[in-house]
């Protein structure tokens, strides 16, 4: 198996539970993922299988989009409703009040990562300390909120927001900060990731669908080619002789403007990425099964 599988992560599973399950279903241990989701969250979880796993760190688009439910008047230790209630306040936040405050959270900003996160400090993930009731100093991180809109109101004090943000943004912290701007506690009651990089819900399959596809022998049809990670690069085709030279790590003469390229064989199979310098082509990374 070689490619990218976009999983619609189920609720109440950690991202690692999903990877563990997929190791069994896909029959390989070689699986990488791109951006974990909290157990409570659902949505786009890109999983890179086999040789494609080498492309996880080569992605250029790390933008994330979420549909999040926020409840005002309540705060928990974890920032989402799975946690213990820490604060209650008798307030009513109106639609207009929320709309007025949202623009303040657009653009580049500093965000303090939560104690309940997998961020490592001195080798330990912070959540381990958090579970012991310990709070430590954290360094704020630069994030960008590209788009932020109120999509609907569900009930009194419960609103659904759409957030388009940079990698490393914590939605529950953003929601708590919005609460602070409104003068009240806030908690995230739902989270669905609708986009991770260039992959959206449209590309995603539930675990049930993945298992069903395996039973029908159609797993391969769910995979997206790893070449999609590089589709901003120009594509070139090489013949068998060139293909062999590249696989051996040799440079080959190739007439093309300087820059990185996606390499395909004459049989339209994707080999990997290479670089052209002064009409000389050299492989940077191969994504084929050996």
């Amino acid at each position: 198996m070689n490619g990218i599988l976009i999983v619609d992560k189920p609720s109440e599973w950690t991202s690692f539970d999903v990877i563990a399950k997929l190791r069994g279903v896909l029959g390989t241990r070689k699986i990488g993922h791109s951006g974990t989701l909290d157990p409570m969250a659902t949505g786009v979880l890109p999983v890179f299988v086999g040789p494609a796993a080498r492309a996880v760190d080569l992605q250029t688009d790390h933008t994330k989009e979420y549909i999040a439910g926020v409840q005002f008047g309540l705060a928990t230790d974890t920032g989402d409703i799975t946690g213990t209630v820490r604060e209650r306040q008798d307030t009513v936040v109106t639609c207009e009040q929320l709309q007025q405050v949202l623009p303040r959270f657009l653009g580049q900003q500093q965000q303090l990562p939560p104690m309940y996160s997998a961020i490592k400090q001195n080798g330990q993930p912070l959540y381990r300390l958090a579970r012991q009731g310990i709070t430590v100093d954290r360094t704020p991180r630069a994030i960008t909120v590209h788009e932020l809109e109120m999509v609907s109101q569900q009930e009194e004090n419960k609103f659904v927001l759409r957030i388009l943000c940079s990698k490393g943004s914590y939605v529950r912290v953003l929601l708590e900060d919005i609460g602070k701007a409104l003068g009240c506690p806030a908690v995230m009651y739902s989270l669905r990731r609708t986009r991770a990089g260039r992959y959206t819900l449209q590309n995603a399959f539930t675990l049930q669908q993945i298992v069903q596809a395996k039973e029908q022998g159609k797993l391969e049809s769910l995979l997206i080619g790893v070449d999609t990670v590089f589709d901003t690069l120009p594509a070139i085709t090489v013949n068998d002789r060139l293909e062999q030279k590249l696989k051996n790590g040799c440079a080959a003469a190739f007439c093309h403007p300087d820059g990185r390229v996606r390499v395909y064989t004459q049989q339209k199979m994707y080999l990997g990425i290479a670089r052209v310098t002064d009409n000389s082509l050299q492989v940077e990374k191969l994504f084929i099964e050996r």
Partner: peptide
């Protein structure tokens, strides 16, 4: 609209997420 540009990308996301009123 609502401080953000109206775009097909935004609308596609909303449909895919079930947020049809918006």
């Amino acid at each position: 609209q609502d401080g953000l540009s109206v775009s097909a990308t935004r609308i596609r996301s909303l449909i895919g997420a079930g947020e049809i009123q918006q």
